[in-house]
Write a protein that binds this DNA or RNA. Structure first.
Lengths: 237, 237
DNA sequence: CAGTGGTCTAGACCACGCG
DNA sequence: GCGTGGTCTAGACCACTGG
């Protein structure tokens, strides 16, 4: 058994020594920590990188290194994941920013998933969700345009798509199928989430249909930051 | 929009330039890559770290940096995850090493989960799974000792627990409940998996019961390496 | 043994945030 | 403007792997 490297020992020491720092409050700066522990700044950085990998701190350029905590986000058959509700209960301030809905012909894959015919159009909606100004998830929804005519004129920049589907169009949307995995996001999504590089994120796919009409209403692909969300998926036989 | 740092540009270039390197074959050494691209070795290391974060390469001390690929591992209500089968189909050589079963009094939490009475004993079994000599998952199973008497004398070091439950004890085990999330493993498990530090792994919890008797047979906690397994969990309404 | 990746240092410059 | 974390360099020594 080899001896533990300095930076890992430091990561434990930092964790202990600053365990009383409240969530969202900064640790001492890297320069200061280097002085405190008598090591080079790069060694401190390696220790903080370990803590960041474990999602115990978040480092913000120009600002500092902050203690964090994840929000538990349960997904099960009975429980459709509701971003806003889950997070508000935990005491955070969630906001959604909707993009402009775009209408275009459906691709072959989209026609398969949504059960559409050749030549059918889809409305594409991109959304970004924020927690206290921090972008934490992206979502791209594909809806059959025939089922949501003039969506662009009814959906405001911060409105709820689910609410519009229910109240404006009169559907009863429910999550018929969903899937979760870890995946490296495309670079544009990584940029939207404010990530450096393309570290893997939690990819949620879902198919939402209407309990009344049986129509497939929406296919959604969503990336969630694993440092923010402790996504728990649960299966029962 | 700031300019992309050198190390991220390099990560893309390395990915392109060595895309023809077969899986499990090495890239040029860090020293060589530094010469090839005319940058410091630490910059090359930062680029390779980005590729390692994305699970595209694995770096092995003293040996080299290798291209990798993940194994898809589907979990759904109908499909109990079977490590051996999943992986053998993908062409890898899976092995399991069982620890020695240990009998001890059940904790309160274990009694809750397994429906045991005060004073009941449990048999604890630790397992490690390997893929081509690489440790890729750990599992700790807790079984009511009353249901698996003398387990230690019937389970060999490389035998299948499921097989023993079926053939020796005559049970019909099936996964009644399971849960998946990302979690930083305790340091002993991290060491078993050959990790540096305690990077988050996929934590699978499951409760296995017998379809014949209805007994709760086994509670299992398992850590899987996300660089090895592309775990996909699927829910249907 | 030679070659690999892992760790650590000293120093520098930069982009960003916030007051 | 100052302090923060982000990037990059040059150089060194080490532990480990493999022939």
């Amino acid at each position: 058994m080899q001896t533990e490297p300095i930076y890992l020992k430091l990561s434990h020491q930092i964790l202990e020594q600053f365990s009383d720092v409240p969530v969202n409050r900064p640790l001492p700066s890297e320069h200061d920590l280097g002085e405190i522990f008598g090591v080079n700044r790069q060694t401190i950085r390696a220790a903080l990188e370990e803590l960041e990998r474990r999602w115990l701190v978040r480092r913000v350029k120009g600002s500092g290194t902050f203690r964090t905590q994840r929000y538990e986000y349960r997904i099960s058959r009975d429980l459709a994941p509701s971003f806003t509700q889950t997070v508000r209960e935990a005491g955070a301030d969630p906001r959604t920013r909707n993009g402009k809905p775009v209408v275009r012909p459906a691709t072959e894959g989209e026609r398969d998933i949504l059960g559409l015919e050749l030549g059918a159009k889809v409305t594409v909606l991109e959304r970004v969700r924020f927690l206290d100004e921090l972008p934490v998830s992206t979502a791209v929804s594909i809806l059959p345009s025939a089922l949501v005519p003039r969506l662009a004129s009814v959906l405001t920049e911060d409105g709820s798509l689910d609410g519009i589907l229910r109240r404006h169009y009169g559907y009863a949307p429910h999550r018929q199928w969903s899937q979760s995995r870890l995946s490296s996001p495309p670079s544009d999504i990584a940029a939207t989430l404010g990530l450096r590089g393309q570290p893997p994120q939690i990819l949620l796919r879902g198919l939402i249909s209407c309990t009344l009409t049986g129509h497939k209403l929406e296919y959604v692909e969503s990336y969630l930051r694993p440092d923010v969300f402790d996504v728990v998926t649960e299966l029962r036989a």
